[in-house]
Design a protein around this nucleic acid. Structure first.
Length: 684
RNA sequence: GGCGGGGUAGCUCAGUCGGUUAGAGCACAGGCUUCAUAAGCCUGGGGUCGCGGGUUCAAGUCCCGCCCCCGCUACCA
C-alpha cells in the first residue's frame, strides 16, 4: 500500500463559547478518522484552530472590559483543555488571529482582486448610534413587517412566526439588541466577491460525484446552482475585530472569509514549527484534503471555499464530509432541560471514552442527525465495552498475571484468523466513515471471544495441577483476541488501547498489528479498565447543565405545563376593552361539518358545509388545509361565526368563519365544543 | 409546495444482484455457569417488513400511487 499524504480539518469552533457535546461529535468523528489513517501508516495531519473574529467577540470583550486578544487566548486554552479530555488530538491547534493566517488571507485576497472578482457596493445598513457599530441582521429586533403577522420581537432577517423574510430596515419599530437604541440607517461601503463568475466551475466540482455526499450535491444543485449565485459580501466596516483589508483601509474581512483560511493558517503554523513546506500540503495535487463539517455550514465549504481556493491556486478539497446535528433523547439540545451539555460538564461526570464509543457506534457517512439517547448510551457502554470487550481481559488476565503469553500462539479453532480476516472490511468502513458498521462487526468478535473462554473454562483447568499449561494457552488465546479487538477499536478508544498495551507489554502502532498474535510478552497485573455508566452521574450531569433561569421557572406551578410566552408574543393581547354589546354582535354557533372538500386551485383553503341544525347550512372557506384532511373533518363539531358578512371569494361565496387558533402553517387548531354540545347552540 | 432522508421485533438497526423458514444487539422469559466490574454462555417468545396496486416462478428488495415521521428550503394568499 502506498503512503498517502492526507490533510484533515474539522470546523473551527467559535471563540465566543465553550465546546459542547454537539461540537464533539464532529471532532471525535474526525479524530477517529485521523487516528485510523495514521494507524494505516499514512502521513496524515489533523489541523484545527479557534475562529476568533467578528462582532460577537468584539462586543463580548467590551462587555468584559478586556481586550479581544486576551479573551480569545483564554477561550483557546479552554477549548484545547476540553479537546484533550476527549482524546481529540490535533497536530496543530491554532487561531485565525495568527500572523500566519493573516499572510494567507492577504495571498488569497490578492488573487481574488487580480481575478477581477471584487466589486464595491454602497449598501444601507442599520447602525447602533450608542454602541457605535453596524448591526448584523441578528442584532436587530422589531415587529415583523408582514401586515398579516406583525409579530413583535423578531430578528432582522426573518420572522420565526410567519417565516417572512425581510431586511432589518423593514422591521417596524426596530431596536438594537446591544443597547436597546433605535438604529439609524447608514450607508456603508462593502466589498463583494462575484462568485457567479465561478458558477460553471462550482457546478462541475460539486456535481462530479467525487467530493461530496450525494445528498449534499443534490442540495446545492437544487438550492444554489440552478440560478445565478449571489455576490458574497466579504467586508465589514470598522469597528470590527478581525483583519483589516490591505487595499480597503477601514474595512475588515468578514469572519467567514478568514475562518476557512484558518485551515491553511493553522497548517502554516505547524509547518513553521516543524520545518515543513506549506505548499507541499496545500498546493500539491498528491496531498489529499479532507474537511469534516456540520450540515449548517455546508455552503460556505462547498461554494465559497472552493471558489476561493480555486482562484488563489490552492488545492481543492478531496472530500467534504458533512454530518448531522446531535440531539439528546430525540430532541434538540435544550438549556432548560439540561441537555445542552458542555464538554467539561460531561467529562466531570462521565468517562469521555464512553462518549467516543457511543458516537462511533452511531455514525455513518450520512448527513442524518445522531441521537444521544441517555438510556441507550448507558446500555451500549455497559454491555459492549464493559460486558463484552473489557470482560475478555478481565476474566482471563489474572490467571496468567506475572507470566508470559505462550511463545507459540496456541490452537484457537481459527478465531484469531477470523478476526484477522476482517481487517480489510473494517478498514473500508473506517475509510468511508461508516463507523457504526465497523463497531457492529468488531462486537461480533468480542462475542466469539467470550464464547471461547466460556467453552474452555480456564477457572476449572487451573484447579488441576496437571493442566496449568492449558490455562496458559487458553489465556494466551483470550488475551490475543482481546488484543486484536482493541487494535481495531484503537482509533475510537485510544485510552483503552494504552491500557491494553500496558497489560500485555506491547505496542499498537499499525493496523496490521491485528494480523499477528502476541507471543512471549509478559502479562501485567490486571487493572480496572472501564466502568459502567452510573445513572446517578448522568442525572447529576443533566442537573448541572440546567440553565438557572429555567430552574427558577420550575418552581412556578404553571411550569409543569411548560407553556411558553411565544403565543402571546406572536399576537399581543388587545389593550382596548370591548363592551358586552360589542361581544354579542358576534353570533357564534356550534356547527357540524357535514361536507368537506379540497378547493381546486387553492393552496390553503378547504371548502366546508356546516350544519347549524335543522335545515340551516353555511358554505365556508377555511384556510386550514395545511393541518386537516377533509375526510377527518366530516361529522365533527366546530364553532363558527354565523353572522359574519358573506364575502365573495375567487372560489365562491364564504358565509361565515370557522374559529381556530395558532400561528398558521402546520399549527392550526380548530375549536372543539365539549361533549354534549349540539349544532345551533349559541356561544356566550 | 420543492428537495433530501427515513418507516423491518418493545428499542437501536443490518438485510448484497429479487432466491431457503427475514436477521443481529439491547430489553424480556427460562435454564446453565459462578473465572470476570451483579460480568458470561445456552435456549426461547416476539414481525401484516408503513398502506394499496403492479412486474415476476419468486418482492423487505424492482415499478406506480398513497400515508406518516425527520431535516433542509421556498412561495402563494
Amino acid at each position: 500500500m502506498t503512503q498517502r499524504r492526507i490533510l484533515v480539518t474539522a470546523a473551527l469552533p467559535y471563540a465566543n463559547g465553550h465546546i459542547h457535546i454537539g461540537h464533539l461529535v464532529e471532532y471525535i468523528q474526525t479524530d477517529i478518522w485521523v487516528r485510523f489513517q495514521k494507524l494505516r501508516g499514512h502521513d496524515c495531519r489533523y489541523f484545527c484552530a479557534d475562529d476568533t473574529h467578528g462582532t460577537a467577540i468584539m462586543l463580548r470583550a467590551r462587555k468584559e472590559n478586556r481586550s479581544e486578544v486576551h479573551l480569545i487566548a483564554d477561550m483557546q486554552q479552554a477549548h484545547m483543555r476540553d479537546f484533550a479530555r476527549f482524546d481529540v488530538l490535533f497536530d496543530n491547534y491554532g487561531s485565525t488571529n495568527s500572523e500566519q493566517n493573516r499572510e494567507v488571507c492577504h495571498e488569497v485576497w490578492a488573487a481574488i482582486r487580480k481575478a477581477g472578482l471584487v466589486h464595491e457596493k454602497e449598501i444601507e445598513q442599520l447602525f447602533d448610534p450608542e454602541v457605535g457599530t453596524f448591526l448584523a441582521d441578528r442584532f436587530v429586533k422589531g415587529t415583523c413587517p408582514n401586515p398579516e403577522c406583525n409579530a413583535p420581537d423578531q430578528y432582522g432577517d426573518s420572522c420565526d412566526k410567519c417565516g417572512h423574510t425581510h431586511s432589518p430596515s423593514e422591521l417596524i419599530n426596530p431596536k438594537s439588541t446591544l443597547s436597546g437604541a433605535t438604529p439609524v440607517v447608514k450607508q456603508a461601503l462593502h466589498l463583494f466577491v462575484r462568485i457567479e463568475d465561478l458558477h460553471e466551475f462550482l457546478a462541475d466540482w460539486t456535481q462530479s460525484g467525487e467530493h461530496l455526499q450525494p445528498e449534499i450535491a443534490n442540495y446545492l444543485k437544487g438550492h444554489f446552482l440552478g440560478k445565478e449565485l449571489r455576490d458574497w459580501d466579504v467586508s465589514r466596516p470598522a469597528p470590527y475585530f478581525g483583519f483589516e483589508i490591505p487595499d480597503a483601509p477601514g474595512n475588515y474581512w468578514y469572519v467567514w472569509f478568514d475562518a476557512p483560511i484558518g485551515y491553511i493558517g493553522s497548517t502554516s503554523e505547524w509547518c513553521q514549527a516543524n520545518g515543513e513546506d506549506l505548499d507541499k500540503w496545500w498546493k500539491n495535487p498528491e496531498t489529499e484534503i479532507h474537511h469534516f463539517i456540520g450540515k449548517d455550514i455546508t455552503y460556505f465549504h462547498t461554494l465559497f471555499w472552493p471558489a476561493m481556493l480555486k482562484t488563489a491556486g490552492f488545492s481543492l478539497p478531496t472530500k467534504v464530509h458533512v454530518h448531522g446535528f446531535l440531539t439528546v433523547d430525540g430532541e434538540k439540545m435544550s438549556k432548560s432541560k439540561g441537555t445542552f451539555i458542555s464538554a467539561a460538564t460531561f467529562a466531570d461526570h462521565l468517562d469521555p471514552s464512553g462518549f467516543r464509543y457511543f458516537v462511533a457506534s452511531k455514525l455513518s457517512s450520512k448527513v442524518d442527525d445522531l441521537d444521544l439517547n441517555l438510556k441507550e448510551f448507558k446500555a451500549k457502554v455497559d454491555s459492549d465495552l464493559v460486558g463484552k470487550v473489557v470482560n475478555i481481559a478481565s476474566r482471563s488476565a489474572k490467571f496468567i498475571a506475572g507470566e508470559t503469553l505462550c511463545d507459540e500462539y496456541p490452537e484457537d479453532g481459527g478465531l484469531f484468523q477470523q478476526g484477522a480476516a476482517l481487517a480489510d472490511k473494517l478498514a473500508e468502513a473506517y475509510e468511508n466513515c461508516e463507523y457504526s458498521n465497523a463497531i457492529r462487526e468488531i462486537m461480533t468478535l468480542a462475542d466469539a471471544a467470550n464464547q471461547y473462554v466460556e467453552s474452555k473454562e480456564p477457572w476449572k483447568l487451573r484447579k488441576d495441577p496437571e493442566r496449568q499449561q492449558e490455562v496458559r494457552e487458553v489465556c494466551s488465546v483470550a488475551l490475543n483476541l482481546f488484543w486484536q479487538i482493541v487494535c481495531y477499536l484503537s482509533p475510537v478508544l485510544p485510552r483503552l488501547a494504552a491500557q491494553a498495551e500496558e497489560l500485555l507489554g506491547a505496542r499498537i502502532d499499525k493496523w496490521s498489528d491485528a494480523q499477528t498474535p502476541l507471543t512471549g510478552t509478559s502479562v501485567s497485573k490486571y487493572k480496572h479498565m472501564f466502568s459502567r455508566v452510573e445513572e446517578q452521574k448522568v442525572n447529576e450531569m443533566i442537573e448541572e447543565s440546567k440553565d438557572e433561569s429555567a430552574a427558577a421557572a420550575a418552581v412556578d406551578p404553571a411550569a409543569q405545563y411548560n407553556d411558553g410566552p411565544e403565543a402571546l408574543q406572536a399576537e399581543p393581547m388587545t389593550e382596548e376593552h370591548c363592551t358586552i354589546e360589542d361581544f354579542v354582535k358576534v353570533d357564534m354557533r356550534v356547527a357540524r361539518v357535514i361536507e368537506a372538500n379540497h378547493v381546486e386551485g387553492a393552496d390553503k383553503l378547504l371548502q366546508l358545509t356546516l350544519s347549524l341544525g335543522g335545515d340551516e347550512r353555511r358554505n365556508v372557506f377555511a384556510g386550514i388545509k395545511s393541518c386537516y384532511n377533509p375526510e377527518d373533518l366530516i361529522g365533527r363539531l366546530v364553532v363558527c361565526c354565523a353572522n359574519l358578512k358573506p364575502r365573495k371569494m375567487r372560489f365562491g361565496l364564504s358565509e361565515g368563519m370557522v374559529l381556530a387558533c395558532g400561528p398558521g402553517g402546520k399549527e392550526i387548531f380548530l375549536l372543539n365544543p365539549d361533549d354534549g354540545a349540539k349544532p345551533g347552540m349559541r356561544v356566550h
